[in-house]
Design a protein around this nucleic acid. Structure first.
Length: 176
DNA sequence: CCCTGATTCGC
DNA sequence: GCGAATCAGG
C-alpha cells in the first residue's frame, strides 16, 4: 500500500494530534509503525509534543561498537551539534499547546464507511472507538472538504507557495 | 517485556 | 521515496 495523498493527510493529522506511530499505523492499515515513522521523518515533521521521551537528552551514546552478524553497517556519520539558541534571552521559548480535540463537527463517517469523495478529516479522539471522519463532501483532488482542506494544506509544498506561519497558526487557532 | 521515536541503508 | 532492521530509551 503506497502513500496516497489521503493517507499522508491522515498521517499528518494524527501525528500532529499526538498519536503514536504504532497507533497511526494501525489506523491506516497496511503499514507498520516503522513505515509511519519513516514517512513522518521524510515529511519533515518530527518534533511534536511527545508525551514520553524528554525531548533531547542533549548527548547520546556514540554507539560505535556493533558485533556485526554478517553485514556490518559501515560509515556512520559523526554526531552533530544542533546548537541553535545562543544564550538565554528574555523571551522563553513558546511551546505550541496542542490540546486534544474539541470540536463539534458532522463526523458521521467511520473508517469503514468513508467514501471516495468524503472529507477525511479526523473527528474526535482517533484512539478511541467513537473516532470518525468529517465525512462531508470533498472535491476531486483533495481528501478534505473545503474548510478542512485549508487547514490541512498549509505546510511546505514543493518549494513555491510560501505560506506564512502566521496564516497557518490563524487557521489552526480556530480549532484549538 | 511492553512500548516510544530515531537512524541507517538496501532496495 | 520506502520501510525493515536496529538502535536508545521510558
Amino acid at each position: 500500500m503506497g502513500w496516497t495523498d489521503e493517507r499522508v493527510a491522515i498521517l499528518k493529522k494524527l501525528w500532529l494530534d499526538g498519536l503514536s506511530a504504532s497507533q497511526i499505523a494501525k489506523q491506516l492499515g497496511g503499514v507498520t509503525r516503522n513505515a509511519v515513522i519513516g514517512k513522518v521523518h521524510r515529511l519533515g515533521l518530527s518534533g511534536r509534543a511527545t508525551p514520553s521521551q524528554p525531548a533531547r537528552p542533549a548527548f547520546k551514546a556514540p554507539r560505535p561498537p556493533r558485533p556485526a552478524p554478517s553485514q556490518p553497517m559501515i560509515a556512520r556519520r559523526p554526531v552533530e551539534q544542533p546548537q541553535t539558541q545562543t544564550t538565554a534571552s528574555h523571551a522563553p521559548v513558546p511551546v505550541a499547546p496542542r490540546p486534544v480535540f474539541r470540536m463539534e463537527e458532522p463526523g458521521s463517517a467511520t473508517v469503514l464507511t468513508l467514501g471516495a469523495h468524503m472529507c477525511k478529516w479526523p473527528i474526535g479522539d482517533p484512539s478511541s472507538d467513537n473516532f470518525t471522519f468529517c465525512g462531508r463532501r470533498s472535491d476531486e483532488g483533495t481528501p478534505y472538504c473545503l474548510e478542512h482542506a485549508r487547514i490541512a494544506y498549509q505546510p511546505q509544498q514543493s518549494g513555491k507557495k510560501k505560506t506564512g506561519p502566521n496564516e497557518l497558526a490563524r487557521s489552526l487557532r480556530r480549532y484549538i
